[in-house]
Design a protein around this nucleic acid. Structure first.
Length: 151
DNA sequence: GCCAACGTTGGC
DNA sequence: GCCAACGTTGGC
């Protein structure tokens, strides 16, 4: 069992949007970074723990607990010319971008970015590291437990 | 809107 | 394979 932190812009898909979806489950569309894709494609397992993070918004922070709900499959938006995530170089026979579905288990308070930064036990949390822009990062069991206590 | 930091692209 | 130019992320 692995743990992850996954960023979503609330303007695109907030934790409330996910909760409102069928089975509180959403396909994690739009990842166009190879490292983040590889985490979904190669390392995620159904049932893995996910911290749902709101980015690019007024109060960035962890807003929910979720889990990986499916095995990887192609991101449909890459083939849709109308989608902002369209990738003309990706062919259905060889999809470049894969995703998993994420199921929200519960909405939590907003454990904000300043709070995360102020927690010494989270100093090594990957998403807090300088320059890290990855939308999906692994979380250690220790960090997961610390964050669970704070939520 | 700014900017630091990183990723991707493409010429060579 | 190098690297400059450009694009993107994401906090502020």
């Amino acid at each position: 069992m692995n743990y992850w932190l996954m960023k979503s812009e609330p303007g695109e898909c907030s934790v409330d949007d996910a909760l409102a979806a069928k089975n509180s489950t959403v396909p994690w569309v739009g990842v166009r970074n190879y490292q983040a894709r590889n985490f979904m494609r190669d390392d995620m397992k159904v049932g893995d723990g996910v911290l749902f993070y709101h980015s690019s918004c007024a109060e960035p922070g962890i807003v929910g607990m979720a889990q990986v709900a499916t095995t990887p499959y192609p991101d449909a938006t890459q083939f849709d010319p109308e989608s902002p995530y369209y990738d003309a170089k990706s062919k259905p026979a060889e999809p470049r971008w894969t995703l998993v579905d994420v199921q929200v288990i519960k909405k939590t308070r907003n454990l904000t970015l300043p709070e995360l930064r102020a927690t010494p036990a989270l100093a090594e949390l990957l998403m807090l590291k300088k320059g890290n822009r990855l939308s999906i990062t692994p979380v250690t069991k220790e960090h997961w437990q610390v964050i669970s206590q704070l939520l």
